[in-house]
Amino acid sequence: MSATSIGIEGALEALDGAAGVASVRAWMERHREALLAHQEGRRINWRALCDWFASVGLLNGKGQMPTIRCAQLTWYRVGKWLERRKARAAERQAEALRLEAERESEKAAIQAEIRQRREAEAAEQAALRDRMEKAERAAAWRRDEAARVTEHNQRVAAEAEARKARAASVASAQSAPGHSAVALAGDTPLVTLDLPKIVGVSYRAYEPFDPTLPPVRKGEINPLSGNAWEFGDDLPGYPSKRGYEFEDDWLKDVGRFIDARHETTRSMTEEEKFVYRAACARRYL
């Protein structure tokens, strides 16, 4: 017979026999709670109980009929033993609950760390996408601006060549006998404003313009941006909005010209004050 095929029943019987299954102590261990509940705080009649122990054959640890004193001591010892057993069971349960709470706390901490890491990664990815979009918009604006500046320079150069050709033709007509100087139809000379050179003012302020064109009015649509002009009409003696894509750039340049022209707002016109204060509000000055 192998060790794995032997059952535990025989071992349990041997232990019960050694502990005295038919002993007063074993009976008290099993039925102490029921007896206390039955008495409801009344004193136990140990004489009657010992007589019953003798009638049913329950013996003490020495195999003798229990006396009243022996039964009382056994009752006391069983009570202490059961208290210790309950205390140990309560400690084991408390330890199990503590370990379970620690596991739940560690699990929650790990989950919180994973969630924070994912949120940080998502925020970093969002910030990266935002930086990439801003960089793409800035690059597109620089390409458009470079193309616009190139086109403007080409146009200015072509107009300058045209003016030189017209001037040469007029001079030739004046030198020939019997001819008078006559301007070509649709020929409008461009002019530039006599403006001081100020640091921070863009090149747009010094570009030549067609004086026959009407001034830009507030509320008109800017053909370059598609937005309505907001900060008043063109100011006489200052660059026109017509040469600007964004009104903020015009505010910045004109605000600096107004600031250089006037020591205080007292000498400004109402229109100049409006533009000057708008430029100051946007911290361009």
Rank of each mutant, 00 (worst) to 15 (best):
L99A: 14
V199R: 11
C70I: 11
A109V: 11
E106F: 00
V21D: 09
V21Q: 11
P196K: 04
S202I: 05
Q111M: 09
F231I: 05
A22W: 09
R129K: 12
V199L: 11
R256T: 12
R117F: 02
A94Q: 15
Q116K: 12
G61F: 13
A71P: 03
S180V: 06
V216D: 02
A147W: 02
Q64P: 00
Y238H: 07
R277C: 08
A176L: 11
G243Q: 00
T150P: 01
R163G: 02
Y206G: 03
G41W: 14
M28D: 00
A279N: 01
K252E: 03
G255D: 05
L73I: 14
S202W: 02
W75T: 04
Y206E: 00
K164L: 15
W141G: 00
S202G: 15
A26N: 04
A173T: 03
G255M: 01
W75L: 06
W250F: 04
R88H: 13
D248L: 10
A126V: 11
G79I: 10
T74W: 06
H152W: 10
N45A: 06
A18P: 02
G7T: 15
A96W: 02
E270R: 12
G200P: 03
G219T: 04
V24S: 00
R43I: 07
A135F: 09
R266G: 14
R69L: 13
G219S: 07
R30C: 14
E263R: 09
R77L: 14
M132G: 05
L58Q: 02
A181N: 01
N222W: 04
A120Q: 13
A89Q: 14
Y76R: 13
G41R: 10
P214H: 07
V56W: 05
R283A: 10
A183L: 09
G178W: 02
E29A: 09
E91F: 06
N60I: 07
V182A: 11
P223Y: 07
A185V: 15
K164H: 08
D187L: 09
V191L: 10
S175L: 10
L97G: 06
N60L: 03
R131Y: 09
S169R: 11
L285Y: 04
D51W: 09
W75E: 07
E91M: 07
Y244C: 03
A90C: 09
R25S: 14
P215F: 07
R256I: 04
T192G: 13
